[in-house]
């Protein structure tokens, strides 16, 4: 019993896969952008002077890093409307992935912050920078440089998590692939092409971040 590969139907729907990929990238980017803001705030809080904010940041990470992204997505999309909070599909998914991303990015930034030499922070204070200025002009740039390799891994992982949006019928790459599957029964062909699209996109993200890393001075 041979199975003959026929990629024809996949190519015929290739534009749908590409638009799905673009949507997935958009979802991932939006979530990472919001998550990075949350992660920066919580990361600084987690190494900051206030015990209250340190604990709050720790609690946030504990909750959202230990929930599967699928559970967060389902709770936000189906659960929150029960409390009167109604978001459309895309908003709901971006919010879910953003709080999830925020928890991981908090840890990435926290590790980067802990690796900033204490003496360099003191040097910033010694020339008269305020605490806030020292964080902005001295600590943050060094932290980002420290965190870049781990950031790359996290970004890639979050982009792949955009496939979870399929469960609430957002037409991103995985959702489109399932539809093409159902229409054509070309299981292997569809998922082969989709896998190649995911892999090549992730490799591109990795290459972009490595290029960015090279632009930073070596410490």
């Amino acid at each position: 019993m041979g199975y003959t590969l026929h990629f024809g139907v996949v190519w015929a729907s290739f534009d749908r896969l590409l638009s799905g990929l673009a949507l997935g990238l958009g979802l991932g980017l939006a979530a990472v952008a919001i998550g990075a803001v949350i992660g920066l705030a919580a990361g600084f809080a987690s190494v900051g002077p206030s015990p209250f904010w340190r604990r709050a940041a720790g609690l946030y990470v504990t909750v959202f890093r230990n929930l599967p992204i699928l559970v967060i997505v389902l709770v936000v999309y189906f659960g929150l409307p029960q409390w009167g909070i109604r978001l459309d599909k895309v908003e709901s998914f971006v919010a879910s992935l953003a709080v999830y991303a925020g928890a991981y990015l908090t840890e990435v930034f926290r590790a980067g912050l802990l690796a900033v030499p204490k003496g360099v922070i003191e040097a910033g204070r010694a020339i008269g920078l305020t605490r806030l200025q020292t964080n902005a002009y001295v600590v943050a740039p060094i932290m980002v440089r420290n965190a870049l390799p781990a950031l790359g891994t996290t970004f890639i992982s979050l982009f792949k998590d955009s496939s979870i949006a399929a469960v609430i019928a957002i037409p991103e790459l995985t959702f489109e692939a399932r539809k093409i599957n159902v229409e054509s029964f070309r299981v292997i062909e569809t998922w082969t092409v989709v896998s190649l699209l995911y892999v090549s996109t992730c490799l591109s993200i990795a290459a972009l971040l490595r290029a960015l890393e090279r632009r930073f001075p070596k410490f």
Partner: peptide, 19 residues
Amino acid sequence: SRQRAMTGMVFQSFNLFPH
């Protein structure tokens, strides 16, 4: 911070901003 700016400090381990 304002009072710190009245003095300058040079450290044993240089502590230059590496970036």
